[in-house]
Design a protein around this nucleic acid. Structure first.
Ligand SMILES: Nc1ccn([C@H]2C[C@H](O)[C@@H](COP(=O)(O)OP(=O)(O)OP(=O)(O)O)O2)c(=O)n1
Ligand SMILES: [Mg+2]
Length: 937
DNA sequence: ATCCTCCCCTAC
DNA sequence: TAAGGTAGGGGAGGAT
């Protein structure tokens, strides 16, 4: 519980709460790519690059594009003219048989020659090397590359460009100069490494996620926290103290609470030291890099020191270091490299995750038995409410109880814990920092206020807040106390200001939280993520989605929304990424509502893939991928069965962005090919889901225009330097060095207030509200018994809404019946011109034939026993509107009638009737606009 | 006025 | 070699 990071990113602080208020638009435009002109010797060439190449993926891309070539990161059968590859895997050989597959030398030599050379001489297939596994050839590539690199890296560390052409070729020079602005699949940092080794550690490998997670300390930390919350709840039940309730329930005398914060001293080190006892009195850190050799075979008098072994360029992070190391200035989270400069004798010992977990269990066994209430904070840390126990068994002597706990834990685990005591969480936590190492400390409000501590010693205050306060001349808690609330709010935002105001006075109203159900389930990976094409990215998302769903119990798989979080290589960022890391990135995220009961892996995956496609991000730029599924309370508490609703939208929705309307029919994402190997990992149900998604998207889809169109959808990039982590450690010199600090907003609306049914009802309600045509359906068409059967909360809402939008019903609108459809059509033609995009037939979930549509609608109504979800209503509404736009009123009428028919058959039809009315309302609104008439269903 | 979306921050 | 994951609090600005 100390700010586990080192030198924060100064220079960005001013930006934070001040500059971040600037308009999005201000920052949106910044790139003007002024490429010098070259002869367009590759005009008409549409190329795709496969696998690892020399020159690199990026260099080839740049060279070709500058000379008129067009790059596609998917393999389009119809458009790609050339595939560039150094070697092909067996499977690819067949797949590529009908393309011109050329070696990269074709490009290089063509540039040298100043014209496009005949490709046959460079053909990969049909040459001696046909069928060479890619592995082999990239190995070969790598060997030469290593040789080159080692001797010719320039002062700036720029790698040479292995083109084998004279260095004064201007294009190539330019490529070199521009190199820092682009990073190919293998980052600059990884350039000189053994490519084969790197490839095997990329996220595209088969069991990457499992392997990576097995080694990631932060993953373990997160996982453990979730597990421990469960474990605590379980222990409480076993101890016959069912769940919560410390709210002075029963006979308890209302007293001021006594909170204890119990935290292991340098946990990972203490635990790992159990098996390396002779290192106890040396500066020690736990980290992956074990640059010295086996410490058991070495004599133990300093020879083992990491520094002995030269290199000193490990970017390995220190998870935990002991207090001897800390006396040198070493901190948790520091990279080894840096720590060694502070403490040359620093010893590295490996992680032992299983040991940490075991010790943690023992620890929780002990504290939950003692505490009235336990909140699991982390694997090595818990908050205890000990009020009752203290008075019952310890005569109010908190110090005694604390020592008791410390002793018991030490006896059972061999590791020391420190204990902070206070009347609130805040004071207990701050007390812990004074207690460490291996001690107890107690604070009351008075003694807290006498402390001379800095703002960053308060929990919840990190680098950014500390920085924005500092740039306003506030750095100690006392200074905060002397600052008015208003001023604090100007500096830090509303809530943070209130927190600061209270904390600075030792006031903390927070209570222990033992059993709040989890609201979000996610998986993020920002390491080893290097995709060389869209399919790589899609495949990875499938696996990640499986991972997310694996963490959800069946009970948790109710309705949900899903968001996809991508970090994208920062444009123009010269600094290479940390080894296989994400480097400095911009974050983008996009979310979608999943229908009820639909967050099985396949549906999550297909939704995310679609989101990714919508975001139009060059897969080569992706450095981090995250998926989170947000739980929605299900509509009916019993809500078990329903296979539920139709899948997420079968077509991309372009509801936002300035030019959305224009491109709507051209920007449909192209589905890439999912690997059969990825698919075969999955259960049948998931596979079918995905296959169905790909079937839907492929037909009507036209190609996305290569790169470039990045922010076409109004998403603007943001810097996201993984807060408080190693990437930023270098103090940023500049004043305005970063343009961080920008508007942002809430991720999760806690379904805070309320009854079970709320969320889904709200969705329905939202749909209703969004309908400005309430006047079409409310007065006359809302059956009284429908109304009467609605939950009261909804009735009230609707009534309020109705009053607000009280219609002035216009009389000139007449029913549109079959016999005057033709006339209406003609009229509309005049009014709106020829129908839009005749190319694209309106489709409902991939179906356009009226019988198929009926089947889908029928299945939807039948299977969603608990009522419709907004998203599906939207989907049908979209479809009907499209039909109207296409002047296919016949079909629109037909489908609506059928929908009505099915709705009426439903046993609990009220909600379905609302759905019907929403759809009908939309259709009629559109009809009114186009025809000045409405459909009579 | 309130909700929603996309983001940022913090902690371990 | 290194393994920069994640839940949850919160803010700005557009949509309703
Ligand atoms: N940046 C960080 C911070 C912590 N941890 C892990 C290792 C720590 O041992 C454990 C507990 O974190 P603490 O903040 O409690 O730090 P320590 O227990 O190591 O030290 P202390 O609590 O004595 O300050 O979490 C980590 O992997 N990376
Ligand atoms: Mg600790």
């Amino acid at each position: 519980m100390e700010p586990s990071t080192i030198a924060p990113a100064f220079g960005d602080f001013n930006a934070y709460y001040g500059q971040r208020k600037r308009k999005l638009a201000e920052q949106a435009k910044q790139r003007a790519v002024n490429a010098p002109k070259y002869d367009h010797i590759f005009d008409g060439v549409v190329f795709h690059i496969n696998g690892y190449t020399q020159p690199s993926h990026y260099e080839l891309k740049l060279i070709l594009i500058e000379r008129g070539g067009q790059f596609l990161h998917y393999l389009s059968k119809t458009q790609v003219t050339h595939i560039i590859a150094s070697g092909l895997a067996m499977s690819k050989e067949k797949e590529f048989r009908n393309y011109k597959v050329v070696r990269p030398e074709w490009v290089v030599d063509s540039v040298k020659a100043g014209k496009q050379l005949a490709w046959h001489k460079y053909a990969l297939i049909g040459q001696g090397n046909t069928g060479l596994p890619a592995v082999k050839s990239s190995y070969d590539d790598n060997m030469s590359s290593l040789a080159d690199t080692d001797c010719s890296r320039d002062v700036l560390g720029r790698p040479p460009v292995h083109l084998g052409i004279s260095a004064n070729d201007s294009a190539i020079n330019r490529a070199m100069v521009m190199w820092p602005e682009y990073i190919p699949v293998i980052d600059r940092f990884e350039e000189g490494l053994n490519r084969e080794w790197v490839r095997k550690n990329l996220a595209t490998e088969k069991d990457f996620i499992q392997r990576y997670y097995a080694s990631s300390r932060l993953h373990h930390l997160s996982t453990w926290k979730v597990e421990l919350k469960d474990y605590v709840a379980q222990l409480r039940r076993k101890q016959g103290r069912p769940s919560t309730l410390n709210q002075c329930g029963g006979s308890a005398i209302p007293r001021d609470r006594i909170i204890m914060h119990v935290d292991f001293d340098c946990f990972f080190v203490s635990a790992s030291l159990l098996s390396h006892p002779y290192l106890r009195d040396k500066p020690v850190a736990v980290c992956h890099s074990q640059q010295h050799h086996s410490m058991d075979t070495e004599d133990s008098d300093g020879l083992l020191a990491v520094s002995t072994f030269g290199q000193s360029s490990s970017t390995s992070q220190i998870a935990s270091c002991n207090y001897i190391a800390r006396s040198f200035g070493v901190k948790n989270g520091m990279v080894m490299n840096q720590a060694r400069q502070l403490c040359p004798a620093l010893m590295a010992i490996p992680y032992q995750f299983d040991v940490y977990k075991r010790i943690s269990r023992t620890f929780y066994d002990i504290v939950t038995a003692i505490a009235d209430e336990t909140q699991a904070v982390s694997v090595d840390e818990a908050l205890l409410d000990v009020t009752e126990r203290l008075w019952q068994d310890f005569d109010g002597n908190s110090e005694l109880l604390a020592q008791n706990i410390r002793q018991r834990v030490y006896k059972a685990t061999g590791c020391a814990v420190s204990v902070g005591i206070g009347p609130s969480i805040l004071l207990a936590r701050v007390a812990t920092t004074r207690a460490k190492p291996d001690g107890v400390h107690s604070l009351n409000t008075q003694s807290f206020c006498n402390l001379n501590i800095s703002v960053c010693d308060l929990p919840g205050i990190g680098n950014m807040v500390e920085g924005s306060l500092a740039s306003n001349g506030i750095s100690s808690v006392a200074e905060v106390r002397a600052t008015g609330l208003q001023r604090l709010q100007d500096i830090c935002g509303e809530k943070m200001a209130v927190t600061l105001f209270n904390f600075s006075r030792g006031v903390d109203e927070g209570t222990l939280e033992s059993d709040k159900p989890r609201q979000v389930f996610g998986a993020d990976i920002g390491w080893g993520v290097r995709f060389s094409n869209q399919a790589d990215a899609d495949n990875f998302i499938v696996r990640l989605a499986s991972e997310v769903c694996r963490t959800m119990s069946a009970a948790e798989r109710t309705g949900s929304s899903v968001t996809l979080k991508i970090k994208k290589r920062r444009e123009g960022e010269g600094k290479p990424a940390k080894f296989l890391g994400h480097g400095i990135c911009d974050s983008l995220s996009k979310s979608a509502v999943l229908s009820r009961m639909t967050n099985e892996p396949g549906k999550v995956a297909s939704a995310c893939i679609k989101l990714l496609h919508q975001m139009s991000i060059d897969p080569l730029d992706i450095r981090s991928v995250g998926i989170q599924v947000y739980k929605l309370n299900s509509f009916d508490a019993s809500g078990e069965g329903g296979i539920g609703s139709m899948l997420a939208k079968s077509k991309a929705k372009f509801s936002e962005g300035p030019n959305s309307g224009q491109h709507a029919f051209h920007d449909l994402p192209t589905a890439s090919q999912l690997d059969t190997s990825v698919l075969s990992e999955l259960p049948d149900s998931i596979r079918q889901e995905l296959e169905s998604y790909y079937r839907q998207t492929s037909p009507g889809a036209s190609m996305t225009t290569t790169a470039g169109s990045r922010s076409a959808m109004g998403v603007s990039p943001r810097e996201s330097p993984h807060t408080g982590s190693a990437g930023l450690k270098t103090p940023r010199s500049g004043i305005g060095s970063g343009r961080r600090g920008r508007p942002r907003k809430l991720a999760f609306q806690p379904t805070s207030s309320g009854s079970k049914g709320k969320q889904a009802n709200v969705n329905l309600l939202q749909a209703f509200k969004r309908l400005e045509t309430l006047d079409f359906i409310m007065p006359s068409q809302m059956d009284t018994d429908v109304w009467g059967n609605l939950p009261m909360s909804i009735r009230r809402e609707l009534a309020r809404e109705y009053i607000k939008t009280k219609p002035t019903v216009s009389e000139k609108i007449t029913p549109l019946t079959n016999h005057n459809l033709a006339a209406a059509d003609a009229k509309a033609m005049v009014a709106t011109g020829p129908s839009i995009g005749a190319a694209l037939m309106p489709m409902l979930y991939g179906a356009s034939d009226v019988n198929d549509v009926h089947r889908i609608v029928g299945a939807w109504v039948d299977s969603s026993s608990a009522g419709p979800l907004e998203e599906d209503i939207d989907e049908v509404g979209d479809y009907i509107e499209e039909l109207v736009q296409h002047h296919d009123l016949m079909k629109a009428t037909n489908v609506l009638k059928y929908f009505k028919f099915r709705c009426m058959q439903q046993s609990d039809s009220q909600l379905w009737q609302i759905a019907l009315k929403i759809v009908l309302g939309r259709a009629n609104k559109m009809c009114a606009g186009i025809y000045g008439a409405y459909l009579d269903i």
